[in-house]
Every structure is written in structure tokens, then in C-alpha cells.
């Protein structure tokens, strides 16, 4: 049989119209199927509503006692971060933050950017007489520590340094340390874990809780 015999005869005008309709119908039906399938599939990629819900983590009485020991010199305060990890559900992992005893006037003087403009944070920076700083370096995300000799926070990765109130004074970071919310909830002291985007001067929330 010779190849594609059926295509040699162009056919009657009626047949030609039918063929145009069929060609269009194939594209149209195919499009409907594609759309009908794409909607649930793409929807399933939306993060579930229980991910990243605002989460205040409580401090145990021991941890609160430790917090109260903070002075001008920061102390490390540990707590159990209650996280949901996909289908593993809720789990607690140990986390720590830096706490400094200070007042709003002091911080406002040194770090006015936290109170207005691009680097502003939408919650009080000083609560219950303390400022809490995220242990994640705002440069590229390493954990940093307090260096007694330098009297600064110093990050081991790329050498960024911050004062005891988190003011950026040396190294490649583009903003100072990120403060975290602290509150007294019916007698329980709680802090909120928030992760901000690295390596940018503004505070862009990546993850809460």
C-alpha cells in the first residue's frame, strides 16, 4: 500500500470543513483536559494550612530563670521549638536564642532602623525588659556566638560582628541581628521563632514557628 494515500485527494468542501472542525476539536479538548488536570496538580503544591502557623514557644521555669540572668552581656537561652515536619506531625527540637537586658530607649538610640523604614519589625523589640535575638546570622545563616574578649557577637563563617544590642559593626552582613517577639501569656513566658531572609537589609519573613 502506498504511503498516505488518503491525503492525496483533498476531498469535498464538506469533508474539508469537517476536517477543520476535527482539528480544532482535538486542540480544544486537549486543552480542556490539560487545564482540568493542571488545576488539582498545581493546587496540591500549595503548602498545607497547618504549616508555618504562628507559634509561640513556651520557656520552662528553668529557662526563664536563665533569661533573667541576662545583663548587658547576652546569655544563651534554650527552649523547645514546636515544629510540624510534614507527615511526621508536631515534634520538639531544641533551639536557642540570645537574650540581653536592655530598654527600648537604648536600642532605639543604637538601632533606629528597627523602628521605622525598610528594616522595621512589626512588633516591640524590647519586652519584659529584654531583647531577644535570633541565633541565625542575617548574612548567610550561620549560628554565631558571643565573644567576651571582643565584647561583640562574632560570626565564624564570614566574620560579621555585632554589638550586644545586635548593631552591625563589622563584616559583610547587610543588617543587624534580628529581634524576636517575647511575651508573658497568662503567666507563661513565650517567645516566637521567626526566620528572616538572609543577605538583605530588610526583614522578609521566611518561616514562623
Amino acid at each position: 500500500m502506498a504511503h498516505a494515500e488518503a491525503y492525496k485527494d483533498p476531498g469535498t468542501p464538506q469533508e474539508q470543513t469537517r476536517r477543520v472542525f476535527m482539528a480544532n476539536a482535538v486542540v480544544a479538548l486537549g486543552g480542556v483536559i490539560g487545564l482540568g488536570l493542571a488545576i488539582p496538580l498545581i493546587t496540591s503544591l500549595i503548602p498545607p494550612s497547618d504549616a508555618n502557623v504562628s507559634e509561640w514557644s513556651p520557656l520552662t521555669p528553668d529557662e526563664v530563670a536563665r533569661l533573667k540572668k541576662a545583663t548587658d552581656k547576652p546569655v544563651k537561652v534554650t527552649f523547645q521549638l514546636h515544629e510540624t515536619n510534614g507527615y511526621f506531625g508536631a515534634s520538639d527540637s531544641e533551639q536557642f536564642v540570645w537574650a540581653v537586658k536592655t530598654d527600648e530607649a537604648k536600642i532605639r538610640a543604637k538601632r533606629p532602623e528597627l523602628f521605622g523604614g525598610v528594616e522595621k519589625v512589626p512588633y516591640p523589640v524590647v519586652n519584659l525588659g529584654f531583647a531577644i535575638f535570633s541565633p541565625i546570622c542575617p548574612h548567610l545563616g550561620c549560628r554565631y556566638s558571643w565573644n567576651d574578649q571582643l565584647n561583640r557577637f562574632a560570626c565564624p563563617c564570614h566574620g560579621s560582628q555585632y554589638t550586644n544590642v545586635g548593631e552591625h559593626v563589622a563584616g559583610p552582613a547587610l543588617r543587624g541581628l534580628d529581634p524576636l517577639p517575647l511575651r508573658d501569656f497568662h503567666g507563661k513566658v513565650q517567645l516566637e521563632w521567626i526566620e528572616y531572609k538572609q543577605n538583605t537589609p530588610d526583614h522578609i519573613i521566611l518561616k514562623v514557628g
Partner: peptide
């Protein structure tokens, strides 16, 4: 036999059946 065309005639019928299945 006199042949019909795969495109668009047969493919149209294929698409209709697949659409019905969908």
C-alpha cells in the same frame, strides 16, 4: 479498502474517547 486519514479523523475520535474517560 479506501483509506481514511489518521489526522485529523482518527485522532479526533481518539481525543473524544480519551476526553470521555477523563
Amino acid at each position: 479498502l479506501k483509506p481514511g486519514r489518521f489526522w485529523p479523523e482518527q485522532l479526533f475520535m481518539d481525543t473524544v474517547l480519551s476526553f470521555a474517560m477523563f
